[in-house]
C-alpha cells in the first residue's frame, strides 16, 4: 500500500518550526533587549567577589533592575575589581547610593544590591563616554570580619592586661593587704571601749565650748563699755594738751612767716653774701698760684745749692744772649 504524503504541508511545517527555533534562539539570547533602555555604571570593590558572575542580578532595594555586564581587575589599581553594571534607565540611582555585594542564602551565588540614596539627593548622571561610579559599602561578611577582628584584638589586649594585673607579685600583695585589713579590723574591735569614751568626751567638750562662747560674749560687752569709758577719759585729759599744741602751732606759723619774709627780703641770701668774697677769692687763688710757683722755683734752687743762701756760690746757666 502506498501512502499519500502531502509534501507541501511537511515543508510548511518544517519552515514554521525553523522560524520558531530562530525566534526562540533570539529570545534566549536576549537580542530583543533594547540597549537604549539601560544605562551603564561602574563599581569598584576591594573585597573578594567570589560567587559573582557576569549576568548576575543587580537589585535596587530587592527589585531586579539590571545585571552585571562585565567583571575585570581594575587595570589602574590591582587591589580593586571593576564591575560594569547595566541598570534600567528609570532606576533612580542617586549620588549617595551605594553598591553592596550580597549572597542568595547559602547557595554561594552573589548579586549586587544598590541601596541608600535619599530622595532629595541629585541623580547620578552617566553616559557611555563617561560612565558614573557608584560608591561601594562593605558587605555583611566584610563587616562581620572587621568586627570580629576588632573584638578579638580587644579581647586579646584585655587578657594581656588581666595577666599583668594578676601577676604573682600583685597576687601576693593583694593577699598581704587582706591580711593587714584583717589585723586592723581586730585592733579596731579591741579599741571599741576607748572609742566610746572618746565620743563621750567629745560631747562633753562641745557643751563646755558653748558655755565658754557665752562667757566670751559677756566679756566682749564689758570691753565695749570699757572702751567708751576710756574714750571719755582720753577726751577729758587730752583736751588741754591739744589746746596747748594748737597754740604752739600758731606761734610756729608766725615764726615761719617771719623767717620767710626775711628770706624773701634777702637777709639770708648766702649767694649774694658770698659772691663778692668768691670773686676776691678767685683772684687771690690765681695770684697764689703764681706765688706758689715762684716759691717752688726758689726752693728748688735752694735744694740744689743750699749754700747759696749765705754765699751765693753757684753760677746758674745764663740764657741765650745773656
Amino acid at each position: 500500500m502506498e501512502s499519500k504524503v502531502n509534501y507541501t504541508l511537511v515543508g510548511l511545517f518544517v519552515l514554521l518550526l525553523s522560524g520558531l527555533l530562530i525566534v526562540f534562539a533570539f529570545w534566549l539570547g536576549k537580542y530583543n533587549d533594547d540597549e537604549s533602555q539601560y544605562r551603564l555604571f561602574k563599581v569598584y570593590i576591594t573585597e573578594s567577589i567570589s560567587g559573582l558572575a557576569p549576568e548576575a542580578a543587580v537589585k535596587f532595594h530587592g527589585v531586579d533592575v539590571g545585571l552585571v555586564e562585565k567583571i575585570q581587575i581594575n587595570p589602574r589599581n590591582s587591589e580593586e575589581v571593576e564591575l560594569t553594571l547595566k541598570i534600567k534607565k528609570e532606576t533612580p540611582i542617586r549620588t549617595d547610593s551605594t553598591a553592596t555585594l550580597k549572597f542568595f542564602g547559602i547557595t554561594g551565588l552573589a548579586f549586587i544590591e544598590i541601596g541608600g540614596g535619599s530622595k532629595n539627593s541629585p541623580l547620578l548622571i552617566t553616559s557611555d563616554d563617561n560612565i558614573a561610579i557608584i560608591p561601594t559599602a562593605p558587605s555583611l561578611i566584610k563587616r562581620l570580619d572587621e568586627t570580629l577582628s576588632s573584638v578579638v584584638t580587644k579581647l586579646s589586649d584585655t587578657l594581656d592586661h588581666t595577666n599583668a594585673i594578676m601577676s604573682d607579685k600583685n597576687t601576693k600583695n593583694f593577699s598581704a593587704t587582706l591580711q593587714n585589713l584583717k589585723i586592723l579590723s581586730q585592733q579596731i574591735n579591741s579599741y571599741q571601749d576607748e572609742i566610746d569614751v572618746l565620743l563621750k568626751n567629745s560631747i562633753q567638750t562641745g557643751k563646755k565650748l558653748d558655755e565658754t562662747m557665752l562667757k566670751v560674749g559677756t566679756s566682749a560687752d564689758k570691753v565695749g563699755s570699757s572702751l567708751d569709758t576710756f574714750k571719755v577719759t582720753m577726751r577729758d585729759s587730752l583736751s588741754p594738751t591739744m589746746k596747748a599744741w594748737a597754740e604752739t602751732s600758731k606761734k610756729s606759723n608766725a615764726l615761719i612767716e617771719k623767717i620767710e619774709t626775711s628770706m624773701n627780703r634777702g637777709d639770708y641770701d648766702l649767694q649774694a653774701i658770698a659772691s663778692d668774697s668768691t670773686v676776691e677769692l678767685n683772684a687771690l687763688l690765681v695770684q697764689s698760684r703764681t706765688l706758689l710757683s715762684e716759691m717752688e722755683l726758689t726752693l728748688k734752687s735752694l735744694r740744689e745749692s743750699p749754700s747759696d743762701i749765705l754765699f751765693k756760690e753757684s753760677t746758674p746757666n745764663p740764657g741765650p744772649g745773656e
Partner: peptide, 17 residues
C-alpha cells in the same frame, strides 16, 4: 710763674736769668 722760659733741643727747658 713769671719766668721767661726757652726750649732747646725740643725738650730741654730753662729760664732766662
Amino acid at each position: 710763674s713769671t719766668q721767661l722760659y726757652y726750649l732747646k733741643n725740643t725738650s730741654r727747658i730753662d729760664a732766662y736769668l
